Computed example of a mutant assay.
Amino acid sequence: LGGAMGSSFTLTLANIFMWKWQKEFVRRQDMTGEFYGRYIDDIFMTWNKSEKALQDILDEANTWHPNIKLEYKISRSLPFLDVFLTNNHGILSTSVYHKPSAEPSVVPFISDHPSHTFANIIKTGLTRAVRYSSTFEIFNNERLYVKLTLLYNGYPSSLIETQFRRFFSEYISSSSFLPYMDDEKQFLILRNTLLKQPTHRQSQVSMSATKADIHNDQADGVHTVFEKTADEKGKQKHDFPD
């Protein structure tokens, strides 16, 4: 048996299967106050006991089902999806993860796209930098990476500075010479604001759920009207028997 790749139904079945498979993992992590998170087939978890004990648990997990084999990496610093996490003596810091083999490429400025596409690319890069950077220093490094990537792909400096200033407009002085923040408190305020906002993907999921609820409500409404009509017909037959 199998399912079509990319199908919502197949993904749902896979998540149900993984939910059952990971129950023992979650139970053990809860008992020790550790963190466990999974996105599709990527898992991230914390551990404060010996590395050997963790390896034993992961090796045991590979025996739970013949079709599930974990490939794991244990380290104080490692990537999870597009976030790079580092354990600094018990304090987790985060930054944007860039694969070493990945080219610093975005949609080239010479491509035939509407102008708002380039503005959105700049905004997306800055938004990711703010959300993923746990400190002001990490953010500044990522901001520089974003700017260099844009220049590498042919974006004019004037456009970059204009979009940077527009992005930070609420957090820097209008008379500031540099189009970015230079104060850690301003950065933390901006980061907390963005972290409270849903991502584009979260907004899509919420919209889909809302549409599904509306559809179900409409279906329930039709069903209710039908039942009411049937009741009224029954009353009519009762009041006026043949």
Rank of each mutant, 00 (worst) to 15 (best):
D82I: 06
D82H: 02
V83D: 00
F84Y: 12
T86D: 10
N88S: 11
N88I: 11
S93D: 05
T94E: 05
T94W: 01
S95V: 03
V96S: 01
S101L: 02
A102L: 03
V106C: 15
V107L: 10
V107S: 10
P108N: 15
S111P: 09
P114M: 15
N120I: 00
I122K: 00
T124D: 02
L126R: 11
L126T: 08
T127C: 00
T127Y: 00
A129I: 03
R131I: 08
Y132D: 02
S133L: 09
F136P: 08
F136Y: 14
E137D: 09
N140M: 14
Y145S: 01
Y145H: 02
K147I: 03
K147S: 05
L148F: 14
L151M: 15
Y152P: 04
G154C: 08
G154D: 03
P156D: 06
E161T: 07
R165D: 04
S169L: 09
Y171N: 11
Y171V: 05
S173H: 11
S174H: 14
S175K: 15
S176P: 09
F177I: 14
M181C: 04
M181P: 00
D182H: 14
E184W: 00
Q186E: 13
Q186F: 09
I189L: 10
R191E: 04
L194A: 03
L195P: 00
K196N: 11
